[in-house]
């Protein structure tokens, strides 16, 4: 017997009585979603910045390698999209568009339609995600309603920069992935 057959047979043999699958109700959400979003993002060690603040930051910092797939910041791109993601190991700043975000925990949903390469938001040294203020929802239940039955091969909720607390529970930002997350709400 194959392992698949033996595992399934072992379960079927138990003749378990089916238990009900609950429906998920709606829950109250924060009255001011932008304020709640900003608060949640700060908690995750990310920051909300304005378009002007971001432009000023780029001008002042002079990131050597920038890739933007956001039309709002398209002019900042100064490199080609590589064939292999490893060639983005020296990417300094990535600017991408998020589809929507959940105010309760600052998580932003992106899928392959937002990611020219799946690795971009992780491999870049600094990450900027652009969202529209009308696309901030209250909580994760509303977020999954928005995702619905879409069929992207990869999707991710990003809620902050790469971080760790594995050394004596001291929070350190910038473990493997992006060392900062800035969110522009348009």
């Amino acid at each position: 017997m194959s392992s698949k057959a033996s595992i399934l047979a072992a379960i079927k043999g138990l003749n378990m009585k089916e238990k009900p699958l609950p429906e998920i109700p709606d829950f109250d959400v924060a009255p001011d979603l932008i304020e709640a979003y900003t608060h949640s993002l700060n908690g995750n060690k990310g920051t909300v910045v304005s378009k002007e603040e971001l432009e000023q930051l780029i001008a002042e910092t002079g990131f050597p390698k920038i890739y933007s797939s956001s039309p709002s910041f398209a002019t900042f791109t100064n490199c080609e999209l590589p064939q292999h993601p490893a060639d983005f190991a020296d990417l300094d700043l990535a600017i991408i568009e998020g589809q929507f975000a959940s105010a309760e925990n600052a998580a932003i949903w992106l899928d392959e339609s937002n990611l020219d390469l799946r690795a971009i938001p992780f491999i870049t040294a600094h990450l900027v995600i652009v969202i529209k203020k009308e696309n901030i929802v209250g909580n994760m239940h509303e977020a999954y309603k928005r995702i619905g039955a879409t069929k992207s091969g990869f999707g991710v909720f990003i809620a902050g920069p790469s971080k760790t607390a594995d050394i004596e529970q001291s929070l350190v930002v910038g473990a493997h992935g992006a060392m900062s997350l800035r969110v522009v709400i348009l």
């Binding site: 949640s40 925990n105 600052a106 909720f157 990003i158 809620a159 790469s162």
Partner: peptide
């Protein structure tokens, strides 16, 4: 409130 990366 959530892990920073939740990949599907």
């Amino acid at each position: 409130s959530i892990t920073n990366y939740n990949s599907h």
